[in-house]
Design a protein around this nucleic acid. Structure first.
Length: 428
RNA sequence: GGAGAGAUGGCAGAGCGGUUGAAUGCACUGGUCUUGAAAACCAGCAUAGUUUCACGACUAUCCAGGGUUCGAAUCCCUGUCUCUCCGCCA
């Protein structure tokens, strides 16, 4: 949510940065509604002041004055009440109009975010490792998994239809190993606090992080009005919704493994089979809540935490700076991590790290009191995948496959795999 | 799901329908004292909004939404949540 006073004071910046996103909103229409609202509010407060004074007067003189005189006073206040409630009705109308519009306006882009018209304009800022050499034609993860008898899409379709997976035996274990390894890394080495959170949340949470009201169609809603989270960012960030956080405790760093649920409404026909794009997938998430001035440093730190995992796994990846058309609704500046997938001959996103600045904290009324100034301020929120389990499984299957169809497990996972170092082809 | 109790400032916890935005304690901030710290003492300390160059003034808020009243933290209704007891259940 935007600070209306910012729009009022710096309309040209607001308009320029929204235009950079290709958004149509104009500060002028927003301010017009806001000014109408203010004029009602001013009148209301004036009348309320009179009402309060008159009521106090009645209380004071009620024991001395005659009944008729008091009744007259009461009648006058009664008239005021009617005017006040009429004006309140008008003010409420303008206010809900204002919030309805503002709730659909995306975050202001950071000046660092490059301009671009599609994901083709994203800028590569870093690359680590290099493409594996294969003496044979590397296979896609679905083929590898099915050949090994560890991925079962017939069963998945029987249970839940398309965009679901059934993982078996060592592959199910690999999924669990990755979760444990990543959580251990983030809690023991990277300073994050592990939290186990609900995966069904109230709509207020989704409003707070920015998925609602605009992206309703991407989410699953239950009959009871609870919503399945599309990412643990929702649950973790909303832990601090409507809180005044202790300034001294910042930054807060949370990590959690959850299942994530996405309807994938807009991606019909794309990646319909496999672990790349599923309705349900596991992900370890990182969330940081920081003082405003240190959020960009925190993003750098978060990136290192994500990189530490990719390096451990020995994966070839690149870091992309998202351009203006590709940065998400709530984010101001985003970096994506893409891992090379030889079976598909392309880089695929496995993590996205965003600085949402005070956009989410304003939406969810998360605040903190600056000790030095005594002012109430909005902290900055950041989130990053650390990482998406399904896509990392794809990366492992495709990058470490051998000619006979077997797959080597990265060394850091051996202990987590109970000593299993390789996915064996037991069929042949 | 049934029966009862409750929801007040960062936390704990008072509060007769009329200067109660709200006692008190803790926490927090500043000061005195101390080599430093602790302790003690003194002072400050809710949030949102309007208005003002500023000091300030004003308005709203005691879970949420309605209602009664000239006036509600205080009375009434509805909802949400929490706790205790019973039932059911991973």
């Amino acid at each position: 949510m935007h600070d209306i006073k910012f729009i009022k004071n710096k309309p040209e910046i607001f308009d320029r940065l929204q235009k950079k996103r290709n958004e149509k909103v104009k500060s002028s229409e927003i301010l017009e509604i806001y000014n109408k609202y203010l004029s009602h509010i001013n009148k209301i407060q004036e009348l309320q002041k009179i009402r309060n004074n008159e009521s106090k007067k009645i209380g004071l003189i009620s024991k001395i004055e005659s009944k008729t005189k008091i009744d007259l006073l009461k009648k006058n206040v009664g008239n005021l009440k009617k005017k006040i409630s009429d004006l309140n009705f008008l003010a409420d109308k303008e206010y809900s109009n204002l919030t309805r519009i503002l709730s659909l306006v995306p975050n202001l882009l950071d000046e660092k975010t490059p301009f671009g018209e599609s994901d083709l304009d994203n800028k590569k800022i870093k690359e680590f490792g290099e493409k594996n050499e294969f003496s044979f034609q590397p296979l896609d993860h679905v083929v590898i998994g099915e050949k090994l008898g560890l991925l079962d899409y017939t069963s998945a379709a029987k249970l839940s239809g398309s965009r679901f997976s059934v993982l078996k035996s060592e592959l199910a274990l690999l999924s669990r190993a990755l979760m444990n390894y990543m959580l251990d890394k983030h809690t023991k080495q990277n300073g994050y606090k592990e939290i186990k959170v609900p995966e069904l949340v109230l709509k207020e949470c989704l409003y707070g992080t920015g998925q609602l009201p605009k992206f309703k169609d991407d989410l699953f809603e239950t009959r009871e009005g609870l919503w399945l989270i599309p990412t643990a960012e929702v649950s973790l960030t909303n832990l601090c919704r409507e809180e005044i956080l202790n300034y001294k405790n910042l930054p807060l760093r949370y990590t959690s493994f959850t299942n994530c649920f996405r309807s994938e409404a807009g991606s019909a026909g794309v990646d319909t089979k496999g672990l790349i794009r599923e309705h349900q997938f596991g992900k370890v998430e990182l969330v940081s809540i920081t003082k405003p001035e240190s959020s960009m440093n925190e993003l750098d730190r978060m990136i290192e935490c994500v990189e530490s995992i990719l390096k451990d796994l020995n994966l070839h990846y690149r870091v992309m700076e998202l351009c203006s058309s590709d940065v998400g609704f709530s984010s101001s500046y985003t970096l994506d991590f893409e891992v090379w997938m030889p079976g598909q001959s392309k880089f695929r996103e496995v993590s996205s790290c965003s600085n949402c600045k005070d956009f989410q904290s304003r939406r969810m009324k998360m605040r903190t009191k600056n000790n030095e100034t005594g002012k109430i301020i909005y902290p900055h929120t950041l989130n990053g995948s650390g990482l998406a389990i399904g896509r990392i499984i794809v990366a492992i299957l495709e990058n470490f496959q051998e000619k006979n169809g077997e797959v080597n497990i990265p060394k850091v996972l051996w202990d987590y795999m109970g000593g299993t170092k390789k996915l064996l082809n037991l069929k042949d």
